[in-house]
Design a protein around this nucleic acid. Structure first.
Lengths: 219, 219
DNA sequence: CGCACCACCACATAAAGATGCTGTGCGGTT
DNA sequence: AACCGCACAGCATCTTTATGTGGTGGTGCG
């Protein structure tokens, strides 16, 4: 098994030297480029003994940030994996880096042995993320807790039945009667019937007026 | 430090007993409910010594799937963390589970000691994911490499102008003439004019036929 | 001049929306 | 058993909007 060629972009000398030293001690890795900035990385690529398969990059760097460097690095090395190592754990930077093409995102406090496992994970096709980072990522898939909105009621307190509320939801979602019918598993004529009932209860005469009521209720 | 109350939902007896046994040996955990299905879990909640803070759940279960059980479990225990443990690593199930509210997703081949670390990670606010899972997740943030699709041309090689191509894109995006007009900053009558030109070049007579051409070209 | 883009008018057809009316079946209540 | 509320469905009719087609004209640019 050949050593994984790794490049390191880190501006703080002490950290850079510690990481470089540690990585060079691991038989699984080969440090082919260790620099302090993206610009230095791009300039040093041609004289590296071989192109890196994995770039471990800080974000707060002099000149171009680690994030801004991602597309430039990917343009030069399309197949490279870029793993972020940063003190920042705010959702904004996490998503910027990931959307820019980073395969993973670790915090700088990650112990070296753990860092090694994560690097091997990347090489094996994984996407290591520090816990706080992973939570941001997972949370982005989950619907925000929606404030419970009371159903629309008529001017005299007329209540809508559950199915009538579903019809209203379909209208709020911008669906045609046909699509509402598909969603609810009923016929278009039944949708029209429900519409009639809803309009009568709410004292309106068009989808537009329903939308207006919904908007007013949302504030 | 009090033990983390954990519930386990796993239908295969051997795995369930192995996991149950391992978790009970760990001083950091307390197994308050170990069942074979979501239904059993929901029924057993009231008699559990205390409510679980974390549910480790399989997906392929008798009756309700682990994914279908997520909203039901969250309804009963809004603050609970649900961690999926499954043989499935396909993107569809991963995203279904995450979107449904799972805080993490592990493959069943995860070694027990690693599982323990992941459980502690959940308790500390993290979102552990097995490598393949994490890659799916990360990839979903990254723009797919878009195949460059040649513009539609007529049967005799008739070329569409740039604006005509924009009209076609609007049709492919399912927009009405009015919405296409809004998008392109022109009047509806101008859209109709362009439609006329496009249909004449492509030898078609309806939006449907444009859609068909587009689909055929996508393969 | 030719082309691309933009706009308007007119008309016809298809689809979506709105309203009136009627009927059936089911579950719950009195 | 009768009644009521709810859900579902269909028919009829009318109105509004979207789509398609024919024709015409104006402006700017190469």
């Amino acid at each position: 098994m050949s050593a994984l060629p790794i490049a390191l972009i880190e501006d703080q000398p002490l950290i850079r030297e510690t990481l470089h030293g540690y990585l060079c001690e691991q038989p699984e890795f080969r440090c082919v480029l260790t620099v302090a900035s993206v610009e230095e990385f791009l300039a040093g690529l041609t004289s590296a003994p071989e192109p890196p398969a994995l770039v471990l990059s800080d974000i707060g760097l002099p000149g171009l940030s680690g994030i801004a460097g991602i597309p430039l690095i990917k343009a030069r090395l399309p197949a490279v994996d870029i793993l972020m190592l940063s003190v920042y754990t705010d959702a904004e930077r996490v998503f910027q880096a990931i959307c820019a093409g980073a395969v993973g995102y670790l915090v700088k406090s990650t112990p070296l042995e753990q860092l090694k496992e994560h690097l091997l994970q990347v090489a094996a096709g994984g996407s290591p993320m520090s816990p706080a980072v992973a939570r941001h990522v997972i949370r982005s898939f989950q619907a925000p807790v929606v404030a419970v909105v009371a159903p629309l009621t008529g001017p005299k307190g007329e209540q809508l039945t559950p199915r009538e509320q579903e019809i209203v939801q379909g209208i709020e979602d911008g669906l045609s009667y046909k699509l509402i019918a598909d969603r609810m598993g009923i016929s278009v004529d039944t949708v029209r019937n429900f519409i009639r009932l809803v309009y009568r209860k709410l004292h309106v005469n068009s989808k537009g007026e329903i939308m207006a009521l919904a908007l007013k209720r949302r504030g």
